[in-house]
């Protein structure tokens, strides 16, 4: 564990909690892509199956359980509890366009052709693009609530911090996982345009709106 990774995990946790609290306290999931949240629930489920087979540390297990629990709670709020506020007309990204090619890719490019390993690989690839329905929704409506942009920033920052963690681990331990690194790079690059808007607009007190 190094500082980059800890900061990355905290940023990830913060993102998840910001989103949960936003929906719970406003009693509304307006502007939130349920499809991205379904994809994240799928990411956590397929990645953390090792909870059943391998014990790494108390920290590791606790965080995994929290991520999975929060992610299902979010999906439940969007599709059940606050369904009436869910903006499905703007959440039109086709999930199968991501899930099917990624399932195929994880069968072809993985560390080991074993069920758990393939599911782990699938989750890494899927996570890298799972935010696309949300970004698509923001670009479709042309704006995002400030709290939603804080969520997106924390979520994007998490993988950027993990990239630094991987650089650290490469030099400190000689550890590198090419699948995670390439997918993490793709994931971080997808956020770059948003990071730019966040820094130039939201941090200056303006709402995130895209030029018409």
């Amino acid at each position: 564990m190094n500082l980059f990774r800890l900061a990355g995990d905290v940023s990830h946790l913060l993102a998840i909690i910001i989103l949960l609290l936003k929906i719970w306290r406003t009693r509304s999931c307006a502007g939130i892509s349920g499809k991205s949240q379904i994809l994240f629930a799928l990411v956590f489920t397929t990645r953390y199956l090792d909870l059943l087979t391998t014990f790494i540390s108390f920290y590791n297990t606790t965080m995994k359980v929290i991520y999975i629990g929060c992610s299902y709670a979010t999906v439940w709020m969007i599709y059940a509890k606050f369904k009436a506020t869910y903006d499905s007309n703007h959440d039109t990204f086709r999930m199968e366009f991501l899930v099917i090619p990624i399932a195929a890719l994880s069968l072809l490019v993985n560390h080991d052709f074993a069920p758990l390993e393939i599911l782990w690989t699938f989750s890494i690839y899927l996570e890298s693009v799972a935010i696309l329905p949300q970004l698509f929704m923001v670009s479709k409506t042309g704006e995002a609530e400030t709290i939603t942009s804080h969520y997106l920033f924390a979520l994007g920052l998490y993988r950027a911090l993990y990239l630094m963690n991987w650089i650290w681990r490469f030099f400190a331990e000689g550890f590198f996982d090419l699948i995670a690194i390439v997918a993490g790079l793709v994931q971080t690059i997808l956020y770059c345009d948003f990071f730019y808007l966040y820094i130039t607009k939201v941090l200056k007190g303006k709402k995130l709106s895209l030029p018409a």
Binding site: D9, I56, M63, D112, A114, N165
Partner: peptide
């Protein structure tokens, strides 16, 4: 061959 990958990150 009984090697399984341990993914220690989240």
């Amino acid at each position: 061959r009984e090697f399984t990958f341990i993914h220690d990150e989240l």
